[in-house]
């Protein structure tokens, strides 16, 4: 069983955290990742910053821009992953747009990722139609290539992703970019139900999730929730990370109550 698969146990709801590597500093990434792993998070998504993050809202756009200004490259992210892997046991996945990976070389990037202790890849601008070449490599190396589904996905596309996604399926909660939201859309339950009919993988809901109540609503129907922009906002607001820590704990509590 892969490290990612072992997170999803019957009756347990996974909490997945997203961080932009190197925002605001590399030190922050190390420290915050440890805090999250020790306070209820089951998996960490390490975001490789990209110059043109077109699926991201203002919060992650800004974080990516500043991380790039700090000189964060895919190579630096690989080193960061290697360091983190020695400190924490939870699965680590890279979230990256496709071009930095393509530029690195698909095979070389996957090999370096596995060596650094990365367990999976999430690539928001790589639909399964374009994923065959990368998939050939990830399967060989036992790296989970996690595909996404959205409320606009047709039944046909749900079947396609259910056939290809490994580790889990990332359900984009709403039609929109990343970013903390006041509320999740009313159609969420129906969307998850449609996917559940066709997919056997664990389902994790991300985009917009920013408080315990939303997390609970999402986790009632899914197997895990993904939180990103809200964490970045908390990192910005409180440099002691104590509000980040209590936020993670409050999410964990909410999920445990289901």
């Amino acid at each position: 069983m892969s490290r990612i698969a072992s997170v999803f146990r019957p009756g347990y709801k996974a909490l997945i955290a997203y961080l932009t590597v190197g925002y605001p500093t590399l030190e922050t990434t190390y420290e915050v990742a440890s805090i999250l792993a020790n306070n209820g998070c089951d998996m960490i998504e390490l975001g490789i910053p990209f110059s043109d993050p077109l699926a991201d809202g203002a919060t992650i756009q800004k974080a990516s821009y500043q991380a790039l200004q700090q000189g964060i490259t895919p190579q630096v992210c690989l080193e960061a992953a290697r360091k983190l892997r020695r400190k924490i046991a939870v699965p680590l996945v890279f979230m990256s747009y496709y071009n930095p990976i393509l530029s690195f070389g698909l095979e070389a990037f996957c090999q370096a990722s596995v060596k650094a202790g990365i367990d999976g890849l999430i690539i928001p601008d790589l639909p399964p139609e374009e994923g065959a070449e990368l998939e050939a490599t990830t399967r060989k190396l036992n790296l989970d290539l996690i595909y996404l589904l959205a409320p606009t996905s047709t039944e046909e596309r749900i079947s396609l992703v259910a056939e290809k996604s490994q580790g889990f399926i990332y359900l984009v909660s709403l039609t929109g970019v990343t970013g903390a939201r006041q509320s999740l859309p009313p159609e969420l339950e129906e969307f998850v139900r449609r996917v559940r009919q066709r997919a056997h993988q664990p389902l994790c809901i991300g985009f917009g999730v920013s408080n315990p109540e939303q997390a609970r609503r999402a986790a009632r129907i899914a197997d895990g929730v993904i939180v990103g922009s809200r964490l970045i906002q908390l990192i910005e607001q409180d440099a002691t990370f104590s509000s980040l820590k209590s936020f993670a704990l409050s999410l964990r509590q909410a999920l445990n109550l289901i």
Partner: peptide, 14 residues
């Protein structure tokens, strides 16, 4: 060429 876009747009492109 190809279609390298977020999943949300794939159905719209078809």
């Amino acid at each position: 060429g190809g279609k390298f876009v977020p999943e949300t747009l794939m159905s719209a492109l078809y």
